[in-house]
Simulated scan of single mutants.
Amino acid sequence: MQTSDLSDHISQRYNKDLEDLRNNVLQMGGLVETQLSLAITAIVTGDSELGLQVANDDYKVNKLEVLIDEECNRLLATRSPAAGDLRLIVAIIKTITDLERIGDEAEKIGYLASKLAEMDRPADSYRELKSLGNHVLQMVRDAMNAFARLDVAASYAVVREDEDVDEEYDAITRQAITFMMEDARSIRRVMNVTWSARALERIGDHAKNICEYVIYMVEGRDVRHTEIAQDAE
């Protein structure tokens, strides 16, 4: 094999490694989305078994994180990536950390769903949690779509969306305090609702983080802790 052919072969193999890496991240994102969706369903429907299933399946997310992290380290050690490729790998390492934490929060929600299923259910079947959960689930989906397409505009939209999630969470917290003051017997159940809402709010934060990494990959600048509305202009 001539030197030029060898170089082409190495380049093609490297590109395939990077593409496989991105696909593995998308697979992990899809798994996390499923876990979150099932956790929300478990709360809304009062399905204790489904909640425990979500909690017990968290190992699948952890396993993918380890696999992708090891591949990132291998590429860093053997390919010495530069510029855009280096940003991609760094962003992926950060992204899988946030995806793993989303998985942890979904696990927590699964456990809380199993506890709530054993308590008296409100007439609205946790409407506020369902609304917040669906909002956050859409943020995660949009974040992974932005990652797949390297879509900066979509990433900025998700980052701004986090403010609405924070407002929904604050509203649930205020309502929870009112319920507990009015009826001390509801404290245990309402606390589980509050913890579930807190886990959902944190998932929104992680989805926001992933989109900030996409912006970093594409534009090469760190927009964390900045005024995002100004950056988008």
Rank of each mutant, 00 (worst) to 15 (best):
T3D: 13
D5G: 00
D5I: 00
L6N: 10
S7Y: 09
S7D: 11
S7H: 10
S7E: 13
D8L: 11
H9Y: 11
Q12I: 00
Q12M: 09
Q12P: 00
R13I: 00
D17A: 11
E19C: 00
E19S: 13
D20K: 06
N23V: 00
N24Q: 15
Q27V: 00
G29Y: 12
G30S: 12
L31E: 14
L31G: 14
T34L: 09
T34W: 06
L38K: 08
A39D: 08
I40W: 03
T41L: 07
A42W: 02
V44Q: 05
S48H: 03
L50N: 01
L50W: 00
A55T: 04
N62T: 10
N62G: 12
N62V: 06
I68K: 04
N73A: 12
D85K: 02
D85S: 04
L88E: 12
A91Y: 13
T95D: 13
I96V: 15
T97S: 15
D104A: 09
E107Y: 05
I109P: 08
Y111C: 02
Y111M: 08
Y111Q: 10
S114G: 08
L116K: 04
L116N: 06
A117I: 03
M119E: 11
R121W: 02
P122Y: 03
R127A: 15
L129K: 02
S131D: 13
G133S: 03
G133M: 02
N134H: 09
H135M: 07
V140R: 01
R141L: 05
D142V: 00
D142F: 08
D142R: 14
D142I: 00
M144T: 08
M144N: 10
F147G: 01
D151P: 10
A154K: 12
Y156Q: 08
V159N: 07
D162E: 15
E163P: 01
D164W: 04
A171Q: 14
A176Q: 05
M180T: 12
M181P: 00
E182R: 11
E182G: 10
D183A: 09
A184I: 11
R185E: 15
R185S: 15
R188N: 13
R189H: 07
V190M: 09
M191A: 13
N192L: 07
N192T: 03
V193L: 12
W195L: 14
R202P: 04
G204Q: 06
A207T: 04
N209W: 02
C211K: 01
C211T: 03
E212R: 01
V214S: 10
I215V: 15
E219C: 10
G220W: 13
R221C: 05
R221K: 14
H225F: 09
T226M: 06
E227H: 14
E227G: 03
E227S: 10
I228C: 12
Q230E: 15
Q230Y: 08
Q230H: 12
D231Q: 15
